[in-house]
Structures are given as structure tokens and as C-alpha cells.
Design a protein around this nucleic acid. Structure first.
Length: 646
RNA sequence: GCUGACGUAGCUCAAUUGGCAGAGCAGCUGAUUUGUAAUCAGCAGGUUAGGGGUUCGAUUCCCCUCGUCAGCUCCA
């Protein structure tokens, strides 16, 4: 009898008969490991514990301590969910059921959508399936057999038809349920103990909105009860930092039903944050060699025909408006969804020499996009956007340097200033696009090479580019982990053609410039929303709408408090006095709840000594008494350096 | 846009099988003059998102519209 030699992670070796399993190895090491074993990593590939091993290999036994095991648990949980669904809804069609971050989902084709009561029943049924401790059994089948087994399930048949001829088709059985699945799985359903079904929602089959809508059930699963509880608690906590909740509590912004969804009212405090952010980016732009421009909010729609926005972007634009009084009736206007055509016109307005390039035009501009109603989301997805937009016109061989400049700005203004972790993605050509293939090839390569030269890791989002060019997208996470695109750097070799932009080269001949669209924050709306969640509403002092709240202990210090506030205002700080007829405790609490960075408490001692008792946000009772001059010095330093305090 | 859930005072939430719409906070008035996270009392606050229907009677049941939330699709 032949054996295979297995190398364990500690470098030791085990021999098992050819066709032996990882489970046997685990058993030979010890009963504890045998009980804990969930799967195996064989030559780097995760496999079922009971899958035979046919040749010498490296082998690691996976237990719940391995992160891969959690993914397996969730994938198996999805199968258990499907098992439960088939028990209660025998006719349900079975779609996809993958593990996802923190959980899993499964898509079903059912006669009616799932109700919250259905989810309760399904959860109970899942517990039952888990308790019966069915083994997950892997089986290799040929195409004919696969078709036969899933003959009554068109969704599965569609997937079988897509599998290549050389691909191994496997099915997994747990108790009464059989699924077409690549695996691997945990050994038995009994390992599933701590799970919860979270919600149901519609989801298009194959992610295609032209196809039928299936019903998706989301759930979460963990090895330990503490982990499940901690996760559910984390979801609750996240709700508290939701920018829509904080926006109301801190009176930053509102959205008014009479005016319409996706249109933001910036209240005084939110407007201050937005203004400070705008100043910061304009400041950086001017220092980085950009010029500032302002362009119209509406235009004859001819402009968007030239640019190609019509008809390619028309679904996202507001419909045309009738002509002004003195113009012919067939002249129609559009509100602008983007600034690029406007900036292209400024470029085109004069003869440009290669000596003038790059021309960098920046504008924090309001644009309006008719986003579909279901996608709107607080500040993170709106219809009226303030873009910190800019367009760079340069020679083709300046492109890479200009992209470096943009990446440096993003690093300085976004990563360093706010401590955001950045997540880079290159989005390539979409199905609906302008321009020829060679141009797209060149543009996509340019972007990737720029990131590689900067040693910035990135992912590829195939087909995610704009209609006029590929882009580097940079994403943020919101309070519950959803990704939102912030900064974007987009290459465009198409608009220069459509507007026939030119510069005169050293050869005294006309050349076509390249064009880069770029936004550092993305939009002020989305960026501010992300910032609110990032700081949980507690802005660093340079960004806080109210930096200092002066609190007299009693009426006797009201005048001294007013004078202190005036001095601080003269020094350029944002200050309010809270001399309301309330207890000191009440006013301190208000200041903390409203997340004011500093409270300056003025009692008799302070009033007499030109000093203040400083209470720092979040630091509790620990107060510091200092002179007014010392405080002004400290505050000024913190604001100038945009330091992340308190 | 699609699927589902939801919409009660400025905010957070109650209201039994369809039977007079309520509380806390915020607001206003008064008392209190406070040394670091909610002083006390009184007053006021509503076309129950909007419209239609069923009913003796609708916050409650049905239909339509608008909006919000979650997900899908789309996107900064």
C-alpha cells in the first residue's frame, strides 16, 4: 500500500495511506484537534476535511482560530438557510449564496417576498437543521447528472450551462438539501450555533436589472456567542455615528420634503464645516499651481451635445428647460451635471502654447444630477452636489507627472489631514463609451503605471470607468462599512477631440492636449458626510463649527465672559457664550453633547485673574486653569497646524 | 427605477379587538444664581406625510401619491 507524505506547518511530517484525509491526520495528532478541525489547507488550497489526499503535500488543519474557517462557516450557514427555505418553501428556486464580510446571503426565487415573520420561522428551522448535525457531503458529478439533479431549477441549470467543459462539477448535500456548489464546507451543520437572519431584500438575478428580481436573505454567523453579540452591538453603535443621525442632533444640515430629496440645506454649523473644507482645498489648489474659475450653472443644451453627455449621460441629467424670453423657442437649456465642458471652453477661448501647459482650472461648483430615487442616501448620495472639481490640460507626456501631483494632493489633503485610510481602484472602460479602443488601452495603462510608480496598491474595477475615460477611484468606508467613492482622478482623451482643443507645439504645429478630471474630496456633501462619521461628529478644533463655548458660573461673571468671547473672536476663533439661566452642570452637559471642543468656564477666580478654566471635550472633570493669553496661543497653534485635537 | 418595511408634536417614542391622540426632551413664562454631564413649577405645542375609500366612527382597515430606511441596479 502506498502512502503520501504530508508536511505540517511546524515542518514535521506525517504519512497517511494514499487517499487518506486531513481528518485522519488531525485524529492522529490528538482528539482535541480532531474535534476542533473544520477544514484543511492542502498546498495552499482550502479543502473539505474529508476530501482524500492523493499526493505529497503541505497540510494545515484549520480550526475556528483561522479567518478562512469563518468564511467557511458563513458559506455553510448559507446552505443551512437554503435547507430551511426548501423545507418551508418547497418550490423555491435557488440562486447564489456566498459568504460576505461579517455574514452571508442567499438568493431565492419564491412566489411571494419573505416577511419578517418568515425570517423568524426560517431562523428556527435553521436551528433545527443545525441541531440535526447533518454532514456536508461532497460529490463530483458529470454535466448530464448535474442537469438531471437540478432539472426543476432553471437558475441552477443556467449556471451549469455556463461551466466550462474542463471544470469539475461538484454538489454538496446536507440532509435533505442538495446544492450545486464548488465548496468547501465545514464538516457538519452542527458546527453552526451562533447566527442571526438580519433582513430580506430584492436582488436582481445575476445583478442584471433587466432580469427577474429574486428575494435575498442576509444573515450573520460566528463561532462564539460573544462574537455574535459584539457584532450586533457594533451595528447599534454604528447607528449612533450615522451622519444622518448626527446631522440632526448637531443641527448640521437637513433635507426638506417640499424642496425635494437629495437637495441639501446646510444649516449654519454644517455650512461652517463645508466652508472650511472648501477653503482648505482651494488653498491647496492655489499653492499647487491651479487657477480658480467660476462657470455658469445652466447652458444651452448644445454644449452637452458637443461634449457627448447627450445622449450618453442624459438619464442622469435634468430635462431641458424652455428658452429665455428673447430667444427662439427651440433653444433649450440644461442645468449642468459636470463642469468639464465649461472648463474646456475656457481652455479653447485662447491660443495655447506648449509653454502654457499644463493649464489647471479648478472650481468648487454646484452641479445637479437626476439620481434615481432609490440610491439617495443622506449626504453620501445627493442630487445637488458641490464638486471640488478641476481639469488639467497638458501634453501627453506631462500626464503622468500631473497624475502624481493629484495623488500627492489627495495624500496631503485627505489621508494626512484627516487620517483616512485610502482604498485605490482603477476603473476601466464601460460598455457605453466614447472613443476608440487604442485610446482606452493607452489611458488605462497610464493610470495603472502611475500608481505602480508611486507604489500604491490598487484593485481593478473592470467596466467601472466614466463614459469618456478610465479613472482612479479612491474609496472611504461609512459607519457600517459600506464603501463610497471620494477622490477621483479621471483621464480623458475624448473631450479634447470633441471640443477640438489644441496647443501649438515646439514644431509650430497644432497638437491635441490630454485632459485630466479630478476631485480631491469628491463632493463636499459626501466628504462631509464621511467626515461626520469618521469623527462621530466630534470635529477637530480647526474644523469645529463652534470652537469655544464660554460658560460663566453665575450672572456675576456674565460681563467678563462676554469680554472674553470678544477677545477670542477678535483673535479669529468661533466662540459662543452660554449665559443661560441654567445650572452649570446643565450647560456643561450641553457643551459635551454638542461636541464643542473647548469649554471655558469663568468663575469669580478666573474673572479676577484674566484666566479661564478649560474643559476639554471628552476629558471629563480634568480641567486646566490657564491665562487667556496662553489659551489663545494654544488654540492658534492647533488651528494653524490643523491638528487632530482634542 | 426595482423589492420589502416604515411615516404620530421641533426631536425620541406611546396609543387595547376601529371608540375623546399621550409622555420625555427641546420651546415659552416664573422661581432659583449655580465650580464641571440634565434645578423646580406652570404654559403652550397635532388636519396622525398628503389625497381618496370602507365605516355610526379611522392614527388603526383598503387604494393612490410623496418621503424615509435596508438591499439590488446605478454613481461623486
Amino acid at each position: 500500500m502506498t502512502t503520501v507524505r504530508l508536511t505540517l506547518p511546524d515542518g514535521s511530517h506525517r504519512e497517511v495511506p494514499r487517499g487518506g484525509t486531513a481528518r485522519q491526520v488531525a485524529e492522529s495528532i490528538g482528539p482535541g484537534l480532531a474535534r476542533a478541525a473544520l477544514a484543511a489547507r492542502v498546498n495552499g488550497e482550502i479543502r473539505d476535511l474529508d476530501r482524500p489526499i492523493d499526493s505529497d503535500a503541505s497540510l494545515a488543519i484549520l480550526t475556528e482560530r483561522d479567518s478562512e474557517a469563518l468564511e467557511l462557516l458563513r458559506h455553510s450557514s448559507a446552505h443551512v438557510l437554503a435547507t430551511a427555505v426548501r423545507e418551508l418553501f418547497p418550490n423555491a428556486g435557488i440562486g447564489f449564496g456566498p459568504p460576505i464580510e461579517d455574514g452571508f446571503y442567499y438568493d431565492f426565487q419564491v412566489d411571494r417576498p419573505f416577511t419578517p415573520e418568515d425570517l423568524e420561522r426560517l431562523e428556527a428551522k435553521m436551528a433545527e437543521v443545525a441541531a440535526r448535525d447533518f454532514p456536508f457531503v461532497r460529490e463530483v458529478v458529470d454535466r448530464l447528472e448535474a442537469r438531471r439533479r437540478f432539472a426543476d431549477d432553471p437558475l441552477k441549470l443556467e449556471r451549469i450551462a455556463e461551466l466550462g467543459d474542463h471544470e469539475t462539477i461538484t454538489v454538496y448535500t446536507d440532509g435533505p438539501f442538495v446544492d450545486l456548489c464548488r465548496g468547501p464546507h465545514i464538516p457538519r451543520t452542527g458546527r453552526l450555533k451562533h447566527f442571526k437572519l438580519l433582513h430580506a431584500a430584492g436582488a436582481y438575478w445575476r445583478g442584471d436589472e433587466k432580469r427577474q428580481m429574486l428575494q435575498r436573505i442576509y444573515g450573520t454567523a460566528w463561532f462564539k456567542k460573544e462574537d455574535l453579540d459584539a457584532y450586533l452591538h457594533r451595528l447599534e453603535e454604528a447607528r449612533k455615528r450615522d451622519h444622518r443621525v448626527l446631522g440632526k442632533q448637531l443641527d448640521l444640515f437637513s433635507i426638506q420634503e417640499v424642496v425635494g430629496p437629495g437637495l441639501i440645506f446646510w444649516h449654519p454649523k454644517g455650512a461652517m464645516v463645508k466652508w472650511l473644507l472648501t477653503r482648505a482645498v482651494e488653498d491647496d489648489n492655489l499653492r499647487s499651481g491651479y487657477d480658480l474659475v467660476y462657470t455658469p450653472n445652466i447652458t444651452r443644451e448644445e454644449l452637452f451635445k458637443i461634449s457627448g453627455h447627450l445622449p450618453l449621460y442624459e438619464a442622469n441629467q435634468y430635462p431641458a428647460m424652455a428658452a429665455g424670453h428673447e430667444e427662439a423657442e427651440d433653444v433649450r437649456y440644461r442645468v449642468k451635471p459636470m463642469n468639464c465642458p465649461m472648463h474646456a471652453l475656457i481652455y479653447k477661448g485662447q491660443q495655447r502654447s506648449y509653454r502654457d501647459l499644463p493649464v489647471r482650472l479648478s472650481e468648487v461648483a454646484n452641479v445637479y444630477r437626476n439620481e434615481r430615487s432609490g440610491v439617495l442616501h443622506g449626504l453620501l448620495r445627493v442630487r445637488g452636489l458641490s464638486m471640488d472639481d478641476a481639469h488639467i490640460f497638458c501634453t501627453p507626456d506631462q500626464v503622468e507627472d500631473e497624475i502624481f501631483l493629484c495623488l500627492d494632493q489627495v495624500d496631503r489633503l485627505v489621508r494626512q489631514t484627516f487620517g483616512f485610510e485610502l482604498d485605490f481602484e482603477v476603473s476601466t472602460r464601460p460598455p457605453e463609451r466614447l472613443g476608440d479602443e487604442a485610446t482606452w488601452d493607452r489611458a488605462e495603462v497610464t493610470l495603472q503605471r502611475a500608481l505602480e510608480r508611486k507604489n500604491i496598491p490598487f484593485r481593478i474595477d473592470a467596466g467601472g470607468g466614466a463614459f469618456y475615460g478610465p479613472k482612479i477611484d479612491i474609496k472611504f468606508r461609512d459607519s457600517i462599512g459600506r464603501l463610497w467613492q471620494g477622490p477621483t482622478i479621471q483621464l480623458d482623451f475624448n473631450l479634447p477631440d470633441r471640443f477640438e482643443l489644441e496647443y501649438t507645439g515646439p514644431d509650430n504645429k497644432p497638437h491635441r492636449p490630454a485632459m485630466i478630471h479630478r476631485a480631491l474630496y469628491g463632493t463636499l456633501e459626501r466628504f462631509t458626510g464621511n467626515l461626520i462619521e469618521h469623527f462621530a461628529g466630534a470635529f477637530p478644533v480647526w474644523l469645529a463649527p463652534e470652537q469655544v463655548r464660554v460658560i460663566p458660573i453665575s450672572d456675576a461673571q456674565a460681563e467678563a465672559s462676554g469680554q472674553l468671547a470678544d477677545r477670542l473672536k477678535q483673535a479669529g476663533f468661533r466662540v459662543h457664550v452660554d449665559a443661560r439661566n441654567e445650572t452649570l452642570n446643565y450647560r456643561i452637559r450641553e457643551g459635551e453633547v454638542h461636541k464643542v471642543p473647548y469649554m471655558a468656564v469663568i468663575g469669580q477666580r478666573e474673572a479676577e485673574s484674566d484666566s479661564l478654566a478649560l474643559r476639554v471635550r471628552g476629558a471629563g472633570k480634568k480641567q486646566e486653569v490657564m491665562t487667556v493669553d496662553a489659551f489663545v496661543e494654544r488654540l492658534g497653534q492647533e488651528v494653524r497646524s490643523r491638528s487632530m485635537v482634542p
